[in-house]
């Protein structure tokens, strides 16, 4: 079995330089998909007439098509749409000067929005109606109660899924190269192709993903512990 270890030693730091791009993709996509997912969750939870079926159909569409297809549609179709929209508004902005990473943020956030929406909706249903009535009884409005009481508890309930979303997002960034965004997989492809050492290049990337995801998961677990402190309390079990 002949594996070029020297290449691995050289390529690894080179590829690792693109980790920030991967992380940027993960973080921005996550923070884009969270509010969108929360909105969809709200619509589905309240079963808002007219909107809710639309949202659910959209969610079914995203869940039912491969990510790579979504990426291709976003990457190839959005510029056209944006260009004609800008033309209508009389702007002379050249859409093609826009950094393609924006398309990547959008395309990657599609799937995670749907997962987050489902998780938050389920979380909201776990939070009993009594919590909501408690909020109303002290004079808070419905939205105030949702924001201060129901939503935080729904989020805590959905935390494990959130961690999963981050992991899946990180793995999905490996497709960003198809949108001309060079992150670690893209870089590996370039390097590997230049000397026909594809296998070794992908070994590097393979290792890097494990490291990145392990670290992200650790961070997430810490965060999860902090916001779910109300479930276990801070004091010793002195239920006097």
């Amino acid at each position: 079995m002949r594996v070029d270890l020297e290449f691995i030693r050289q390529a690894l730091p080179d590829i690792a330089k693109y980790i920030p791009v991967t992380l940027l993709l993960v973080v921005v996509s996550f923070f884009l998909s969270f509010p969108a997912g929360a909105l969809f969750a709200w619509i589905n939870y309240k079963k808002i007439r007219g909107l809710s079926p639309l949202v659910r159909a959209y969610m079914s569409l995203i869940r039912g098509t491969p990510v790579i297809l979504q990426i291709y549609v976003i990457y190839n179709v959005t510029p056209y749409l944006l260009a004609s929209l800008l033309e209508h508004m009389g702007s002379s902005f050249n859409v093609y000067r826009l950094n393609t990473i924006w398309y990547a943020f959008f395309a990657l956030s599609l799937s995670s929005t749907v997962t987050i929406a489902e998780a938050l909706r389920a979380g909201m249903e776990t939070v009993g109606r009594g919590q909501f009535e408690g909020g109303l009884s002290v004079g808070m409005s419905g939205p105030q109660t949702m924001w201060h009481i129901v939503f935080p508890q729904a989020l805590t309930a959905a935390m494990p899924v959130m961690g999963n979303v981050v992991v899946e997002l990180t793995k999905a960034t490996s497709l960003a190269f198809t949108m001309a965004v060079t992150e670690i997989t893209g870089r590996a492809k370039i390097l590997g192709g230049s000397v026909l050492r594809y296998f070794e290049a992908y070994i590097c990337v393979f290792v890097l993903y494990i490291v990145i995801i392990a670290l992200l998961e650790q961070l997430f677990k810490r965060f999860e512990k902090r916001i779910s402190v109300y479930r276990t309390g801070r004091h010793s079990r002195a239920k006097a």
Binding site: G134, V138, M140, Q144, H148, I149, Q153
Partner: peptide, 27 residues
């Protein structure tokens, strides 16, 4: 008015103090 529930319905994600304050600060 105010309501005291059979199963208390305290805000699980708030401390006792925060539970009592919320009606004043937010509402």
């Amino acid at each position: 008015t105010a309501f005291v529930f059979q199963n208390y319905n305290l805000f699980n994600n708030k401390t006792a103090l925060e539970n009592v304050m919320l009606g004043l600060t937010v509402a």
